[in-house]
């Protein structure tokens, strides 16, 4: 691939991250994975904060290539919004947003006008005169997103933009951001720990694990057939790995009994309850099976009382063959 109008990366940071993927203009790529999987490294590499990292091509421009010096951070068109907003504490909200246009040569008046426009779009237009410490968490994160977008980036890099916010505020902001991202013509990389972010905002999901790409695809496919335990937990699925084959089934399809159930040994497990927690109208029971993996099952409160489900209780789990989705992992 010599020319790519979206984003094409082929990163090689030995010991930290090896990743190759591409995204079309307008795509929102959710980057999932456990801590230390390389998510933030990926964003920093694209932003140019790590120097030579392999290949990064954006909108037909080469930002980094193995045989050429890396393009400077300030000459890449990236918009950054990381957790903890990182607004300049000594500048007003308006001047924070105006910083990008101003740095790229616009006059003070033009920059302020652009900044005011972006603040208006995020519904915080009347807060332009405030310093970051005078803003609430949600307001500050809106200003940070406005600042990132006001610089007219080709790639938008969001690192857990909703973490640390109240659930209500995060939900509201997620809906707003979805709207702004639909209007955004560049590529968005969104690092998140939240399944809702990934599946509400993203057009594609990239799963990182231990410094490599473990899975990528459409959000629905990844949610239905996760290849990593991290994503399985995130979407609340039981996933069992058997060599290159995987079996996934929903917690609601799992039956719990005290006596050994009938059926195939492949579809039943003995174990001990490790935790019971509320999950919607049901109770979610986590069981550490004697065979090794930890499985989850949803039961009604009545059933839980009847079975006397409490931590350390010995139980049997079983699932019907028809409820199990069996699929193969692509050969690595």
């Amino acid at each position: 691939m010599t020319r790519h109008l979206g984003l094409a990366v082929d990163l090689d940071l030995p010991g930290r991250l090896t990743a190759r993927f591409a995204a079309q203009p307008g795509e929102v790529v959710a980057v999932l994975g456990p801590n230390g999987a390389g998510k933030s490294t990926l964003l920093h590499a694209v932003a140019g904060l790590l120097g030579d990292v392999g290949t990064v091509r954006v909108a037909g421009e080469t930002w980094s290539a193995p045989d050429a010096p890396a393009r400077l951070v300030r000459e890449r068109r990236v918009g950054l919004a990381f957790q903890g907003h990182q607004l300049f504490p000594h500048l007003s909200a308006l001047r924070n947003v105006a910083f990008g246009p101003r740095s790229r040569g616009a006059s003070a008046r033009e920059s302020d006008a652009v900044a005011q426009d972006w603040l208006d779009r995020f519904g915080v237009g009347e807060l332009g005169g405030r310093r970051p410490h005078q803003l609430s968490g949600g307001q500050a994160q809106r200003v940070a997103l406005a600042r990132a977008l006001a610089a007219e980036p080709a790639v938008l890099l969001l690192d857990e933009p909703f973490s640390g916010l109240d659930v209500g505020v995060a939900t509201e902001l997620r809906l707003e951001l979805a709207e702004h991202l639909r209007a955004f013509t560049g590529v968005t990389l969104l690092v998140t720990h939240d399944a809702l972010d990934a599946f509400a905002l993203a057009t594609r999901v990239l799963v990182l694990d231990d410094g490599t790409v473990a899975q990528q695809g459409a959000p629905d496919d990844v949610a239905a057939r996760p290849l990593t335990e991290h994503v399985a937990r995130l979407v609340g699925l039981n996933v069992l790995r058997d060599g290159a084959r995987l079996r996934a089934f929903r917690p609601s399809a799992v039956g719990i009994s005290l006596a050994r159930p009938e059926g195939s040994a492949r579809l039943r497990w003995s174990g001990r309850v490790s935790s019971v927690s509320r999950h919607g109208d049901a109770l979610r029971v986590q069981v550490a099976t004697d065979a090794g993996p930890s499985l989850i099952a949803d039961v009604t409160p009545d059933a839980a009382v009847e079975l006397g489900l409490a931590p350390d209780r010995e139980v049997w789990l079983a699932v019907k063959a028809t409820a199990v989705d069996e699929y193969g992992a692509p050969v690595a």
Binding site: L49, L72, G79, Q86, F99, G100, A151
Partner: peptide
């Protein structure tokens, strides 16, 4: 903050 400024195009 320096890094943020650089991403916003500041020399």
């Amino acid at each position: 903050y320096d890094a943020v400024a650089a991403t916003l195009g500041a020399g």
